[in-house]
Computed example of a mutant assay.
Amino acid sequence: MEPKLQQIYSCPGTWEEIVISQLQFGPDIRTAIRELWMKNQAIAEQHKVTLTPMQFVEMFVEKNVTKT
């Protein structure tokens, strides 16, 4: 995937760096996402439900990436 992203966007870096750059997120986004994951895991635990990584990603993208 990484070589294809590098080719498509004409930029070097890991796939994560390319995605972060293309979405114009700041350099602290990894920390912010990790903190949000932990916060949401705690909320899920309080409600005795499981929050899967995929569910978290879908929620994150819906709130922070998709444009309506």
Rank of each mutant, 00 (worst) to 15 (best):
I29Y: 02
G26V: 06
E62F: 12
Q55K: 04
L36A: 15
W15I: 10
L51M: 05
H47Q: 07
P53L: 01
P12Q: 12
Q46T: 14
M38R: 13
A44H: 08
Q41D: 09
P12C: 08
V57L: 14
P27T: 15
L36E: 13
P12K: 10
E35A: 05
E17G: 04
D28A: 11
R30F: 10
P27H: 15
I29E: 02
N40M: 13
E17A: 10
K67I: 04
Q22T: 00
E62G: 13
T50Y: 00
V65E: 01
E45Q: 15
Q22R: 00
T50H: 01
S10I: 01
P12H: 09
T68K: 13
Y9L: 05
N40I: 14
S21W: 04
T50A: 08
D28R: 13
S21D: 12
H47N: 10
A44I: 09
T52K: 09
L36Y: 07
V61Q: 04
T66C: 05
Q24N: 11
C11V: 09
K39V: 11
W15S: 10
T52N: 08
T68L: 12
I29H: 02
A42Y: 14
P12W: 04
E17C: 03
V49W: 05
F25Q: 02
I29F: 02
T66K: 07
V61C: 06
T52P: 04
V65G: 01
E35F: 03
E17F: 02
V49G: 04
A32K: 15
L51E: 01
Q24K: 11
M59H: 09
H47D: 11
D28L: 11
F25V: 00
Q55E: 08
D28W: 06
N64V: 02
E62W: 11
M38Y: 09
F60D: 03
Q24L: 05
K63D: 11
H47I: 10
I33L: 07
E17Q: 13
M54Y: 11
R34E: 15
E45M: 11
Q46F: 06
Q41V: 13
P12G: 10
L51S: 02
D28I: 06
Q46D: 15
L23E: 07
F60K: 06
V49Y: 06
E17V: 01
T14A: 03
G13I: 00
P53V: 00
M38P: 03
K48S: 12
Q22D: 02
D28K: 10
S21N: 13
R34P: 05
K48T: 13
V49H: 08
I33Q: 03
N64H: 13
L36R: 14
V19Y: 00
I43K: 08
I20D: 01
Q55C: 03
Q24S: 09
T52G: 07
R30G: 14
L23P: 01
V65R: 00
F25N: 01
M54T: 08
K39Y: 14
S10C: 04
F25T: 01
T68P: 03
E62K: 07
V61M: 07
Y9T: 07
P12F: 05
Q46W: 06
T31V: 15
S21G: 09
T31D: 10
C11T: 13
Q24T: 00
K48G: 14
P27A: 15
Q55V: 03
E58K: 11
